[in-house]
């Protein structure tokens, strides 16, 4: 199967299920909206909290979207066909995670300046917030895909996936949120951004093997 055909198929499937894709976005906006209600609407406080809140909300919303990554393909049997195809499963999986990020992760990144605005995050630092999410959310997608591959055969995987994956996302959260926080106080942000980039390279290199391994285990049973 050609890579372009795989991407096209996934994008088409995503387009047909538009409303399903909107759920993580709505969740993202709502979780962000809960923080001013629970803490305080004071602008100065929100400003210091904004990087962390946006990052935590993006992390949780991203994980919610991950559960559907292989589910429908597993249920209708097309995952088995992908496994049998001559193309290496690692590569197929890499394309799948990338396409899934395009339709779930990228909208979160695009929406994030709006959330920053709601939380009084300085407009001058907005590009750095976007950059940090642009580098960070694909890592989260790859980690989440490992969990999705391991739990795809289980009937109730809803709560299990975050339990497995959240501890692994800690470094991404630390560097991502610290990038955004440093940008807000106009400190240099190159170092944490480079770390995010390095972790993205690591994830792209190694995660496909873990995801493919997880899928093989899940389908063998």
């Amino acid at each position: 199967m050609k890579p372009a055909a795989l991407i096209q198929r996934d994008l088409l499937l995503a387009y047909r299920r538009r409303s399903e894709l909107a759920t993580p976005l709505i969740f993202f906006v709502m979780v962000t909206g809960l923080f001013p209600l629970a803490l305080s609407p004071e602008p100065a406080l929100l400003r210091t909290l904004a990087p962390g809140v946006v990052w935590v909300a993006a992390l949780l919303a991203g994980l919610i979207g991950q559960e559907s990554l292989f589910k429908s393909d597993y249920e209708d049997g097309s995952l088995e066909q992908l496994l049998l195809s001559p193309a290496p499963l690692e590569f197929v999986v890499l394309l799948r995670v990338f396409t899934h990020w395009l339709v779930t992760g990228l909208p979160l990144v695009i929406l994030s300046p709006l959330m920053g605005l709601l939380l009084n995050y300085p407009a001058a630092a907005m590009w750095t917030l976007i950059m940090s999410l642009l580098l960070g959310t694909p890592i989260l997608s790859f980690l989440g895909a490992v969990g999705a591959a391991l739990t795809v055969g289980l009937r109730r995987s809803g709560m299990l996936l975050p339990v497995l994956i959240l501890p692994l996302t800690v470094p991404v959260l630390i560097f991502g949120a610290s990038t955004a926080a440093r940008a807000a106080s106009s400190e240099p942000t190159a170092a944490p951004l480079y770390f995010l980039g390095a972790m993205l390279v690591l994830a792209v290199t190694f995660a496909p093997y873990a995801i493919a391994g997880g899928l093989r285990v899940s389908l063998e049973s």
Partner: peptide, 30 residues
């Protein structure tokens, strides 16, 4: 979590390996 112990063994083995790659990264990042 799996009905079949062997599946559970192999799935959690993958998780343990992903974890051990991550432990140094987690350690240094915190």
């Amino acid at each position: 979590a799996f009905d079949d112990r062997r599946t559970g063994d192999r799935a959690s083995a993958i998780l343990a390996l992903v974890g051990i790659v991550n432990i140094p990264i987690i350690h240094y990042s915190v």
